[in-house]
Design a binder for these strands. Structure first.
Length: 731
RNA sequence: GCGGGUGUGGCGGAAUUGGCAGACGCACUAGCCUUAGGAGCUAGCGCUUACGCGUGCAGGUUCAAGUCCUGUCACCCGCACCA
């Protein structure tokens, strides 16, 4: 079993903290690691500290940089001038995954679009593989669907539309069958053709004004205004619908995104809600081409499963599915349309204008362009600077370090400059699990033997918040490493689970600003590490969020106190006593199986119930106590180990064999069954567990309460469910 | 809008081939012990005076439904003008 722990400490959280408190990020990192490590140790986790890693250690990020160079060599890392998400507070670009509801995932500040030259990683090239890989892994469904949504595959058709200017442009649609219903076209305001058409568009000033207006909108504003459609009709150019040669107007509108598909669409107002709204606003024709809905003048008909094509010439009478196939063939034959798969996933913006990150090992040479650093020069160590604050001009703080920036081109030897942006916080965590296999290797990121021995990660538990960030990124890197045969498996994690968060006492997420943070140090100080562990496991379902309760934790403390107190009533007897034998076997079974399925809460509940039974007898035998504390050991390792030693049991408890149960002994010799008349409980009786059906029923009928219910009535049915109940149906 | 999930006491939560709803714990109540009690022990604790009624709501299947079926409401999470 490999159960490691390490520190992923590059990135904005550390750096923002450093800036706020005027402590250098490297010192912050060092202090926090020491503190976290102390806390983890105080809880008694059994991590293998000999494999501890730290993503900010040059001996670690040497290999993060190495992987970046491999990505560059394979053409998967490229620098591009483009519109990127810019956090106004962090003064830094963000990946799409880091923008949540139009604000920065980290600090909650507004995100705007900015033209910048950025390093990008072609995660889109792996979209299909990232989807396919989900089929073969044991991830909880939530995680799988969230990743599928994020990657957002859709199958459709790319169609070429000619224009009255003699040129053409392409659109993407999932509903090629509705082509006859296309009554206008919409382009994104950022569409490159607009500039080309400048001289032909009579209202170009209006177009430019609209472009400017939408550029100013933040993502947040764009979604805010989602309902009210705006746009400008291009005056001087029309599109030609290829199926009927009709000329239809072209609009620009910001409800069409430049980043998805081709940045242009055909609008079918009769069968798309957004197009319908737009058509209504601009008074455009709405032509029904799929029959089956209500009046398309009043509402768009978007359900397509049952519809039949109309007003569509050679498609008339076909089902939507058949029409799709037919039109795709027609378009393909004419050479103006092809089947196409689109993804919502965007390439990963990989550079940050910040200090606290891995330097990107690239050099810019006037003659040679971007040149990778030779692998022999890795690690490219992050220089120790005094001033690490982000700059207002959008440059990395490293840019001011001319000594470091100015270098020579590794290719031609001419003077050149280093890349001053750094990698995002997700870089180091995209492959750390591989380093755990071989953490001290200085020849390669991990040896083939070590990787083959340990990989893939058998079981990865983590929070849901990383599903479209770290989990997606690390699967991407891993798949890349697999493709260059650097790792032996296509997927990094065989099984992925996710725990619920412990919320503050008020049911909200714990945070300093809400003032509902519980400090584990205080809990451990007041109640002990074992109480803390037992309570956290007992609090509820592993996967669900649950509020912390300062009074409930006392229950766990009392339980452990009682377990301790059992030592006082321990006898010299061995084995399980007859009256408790079945419950012991049942509890061993329950705890064993519950731990396997992460039902820690019910495992602990079962131990509490067993303890109540033991207490009721006033004593406990040696073997009973042994079994009990062994079952409790994973939850409360300290107190149980202590008890083990004090009782003089041999060796270490944590190295003792796990108790075994006998299925046959899990059942008591006698059981209580209930007697129901017409499903209502009328009596209870104790019977031998193996009583026959006939005996149970006749015994039931002898009960006074039952007799009263069945005399002078017709018995319609009698049944006995073994060890549970007798039900007599009367009329 | 699309996708995923959840609705059970005052609270956290148990309960799967359909078979005693509320395990276990907290809080609460009464009593004991105590100079004292954020300690411990004992008992009680879904609602209802009772007949009975109770797992978001309305139906259905069944001898029997928290569990299966149909419809519906509410809340939470993710994505979202994705063509």
């Amino acid at each position: 079993m490999l159960y490691p722990m390490g520190w992923d400490a590059f990135g904005l959280p550390t750096e923002n903290f450093a800036i706020k408190n005027h402590i250098h990020p490297s010192i912050v990192t060092e202090n926090n690691i020491a503190n976290f490590k102390r806390q983890l140790k105080s809880l008694g986790f059994s991590f293998d500290w000999s494999r501890e890693i730290n993503t900010t250690d040059p001996s670690y990020y040497k290999w993060t940089q190495w992987i970046f160079l491999q990505l560059f060599k394979e053409g998967l890392a490229y620098k591009k001038e483009m519109s990127v998400n810019w956090c106004t507070s962090c003064k830094c670009v963000l990946a799409n995954e880091e923008v949540v509801n139009g604000v920065c995932e980290r600090c909650g500040s507004e995100v705007v679009q900015k033209e910048k030259s950025q390093w990008m990683l072609k995660i889109t090239e792996y979209a299909e593989k990232l989807l396919e890989g989900l089929e073969g892994v044991d991830f909880i469904e939530r995680v799988k669907t969230q990743q599928r949504n994020w990657i957002g595959r859709s199958y459709g058709t790319q169609v070429t539309f000619n224009t009255t200017l003699g040129d053409s442009f392409e659109i993407f649609t999932t509903r090629a069958d509705t082509l006859f219903g296309a009554t206008y076209m919409v382009m994104s305001p950022e569409h490159p053709l607009l500039a080309k058409w400048k001289d032909n568009i009579k209202n170009y000033a209006e177009v430019e004004a609209y472009q400017e207006q939408s550029a100013k909108k933040s993502d947040f504003e764009r979604t805010e205004l989602a309902k009210d459609k705006t746009g400008v009709k291009l005056d001087g150019v029309m599109a030609i619908n290829p199926v009927n040669e009709k000329q239809i107007p072209i609009f620009i509108s910001d409800y069409v995104l430049i980043s998805y598909g081709t940045g242009a669409i055909m609008a079918v107002p009769a069968h798309d809600t957004r197009d319908w709204e737009f058509a209504k606003k601009f008074d455009l024709p709405i032509i029904e081409v799929v029959k089956g809905g209500e009046d398309v003048q009043k509402e768009a008909f978007t359900e397509c499963a049952t519809g039949v094509l109309v007003n569509s010439d050679f498609l008339d009478g076909l089902s939507v599915e058949d029409a799709k196939t037919a039109i795709q063939k027609w378009l393909a034959d004419k050479g103006i349309g092809s089947v196409k798969t689109n993804f919502k996933l965007r390439d990963w913006v990989f550079s940050r204008q910040r200090y606290w990150g891995e330097p990107i090992p690239m050099v810019y040479c006037e003659k040679c362009g971007w040149v990778p650093l030779p692998e022999s020069e890795l690690p490219l160590v992050l220089p120790n600077v005094e001033s690490y604050e982000p700059t207002d001009n959008g440059e990395s703080p490293l840019a001011k370090m001319t000594d470091w920036v100015n270098t020579t081109c590794p290719h031609c030897g001419a003077p050149a400059k280093r890349e001053t942006d750094t990698m995002p916080q997700w870089a180091g965590s995209s492959w750390y699990f591989l380093r755990y296999c071989d953490p001290h290797n200085d020849k390669e990121f991990a040896s083939k033997e070590a990787l083959e021995y340990w990989c893939p990660v058998d079981w990865y538990n983590g929070g849901m918040e990383h599903t479209t960030l770290h989990l997606l990124y690390s699967r991407f890197w891993h798949k890349f490493l697999y493709d260059i045969t650097a790792v032996p498996n296509a997927e990094p994690y065989a099984k992925r689970t996710s725990h619920g968060m412990i919320l503050g006492e008020n049911g909200e997420k714990m945070s300093k600003s809400r003032g509902n943070v519980v400090n584990p140090d205080e809990i451990i100080n007041d109640y002990g590490a074992d109480t803390m562990r037992v309570y956290e496991m007992f609090i509820g379902d592993f996967e669900k969020a649950a509020p912390w309760s300062q009074s409930s934790i006392k229950g766990s403390k009392r339980f452990l106190d009682k377990v301790w107190a059992l030592g006082v009533i321990m006898t010299d007897e061995s084995g399980y006593r007859k009256e408790l034998e079945a419950e012991f076997h049942r509890t061993i079974k329950k705890v064993t199986e519950d731990i396997e399925s992460l039902k820690m809460n019910t495992a602990i509940a079962a131990l509490m119930a067993l303890m109540n039974s033991i207490q009721a007898t006033g004593k406990i035998t040696k073997d009973e106590y042994k079994t009990f504390i062994t079952l409790l050991n994973p939850f409360a390792p300290h107190i149980t180990e202590e008890i083990w030693e004090m009782c003089g049991f041999e060796g270490m408890l944590n190295q003792t064999k796990w108790p075994e149960f006998d299925e046959a002994k899990c059942v008591d010799a006698t059981v209580e069954i209930v007697v129901q008349i017409n499903g209502k409980i009328r009596a209870r009786l104790n019977v031998a567990a193996d009583i026959s059906s006939a005996d149970a029923i006749s015994l039931a009928k002898e009960q006074e309460a039952v007799k009263a219910e069945i005399t002078n009535k017709n018995i319609i049915k009698e049944l006995y469910v073994p060890k549970k109940l007798v039900n007599i149906v009367v009329k």
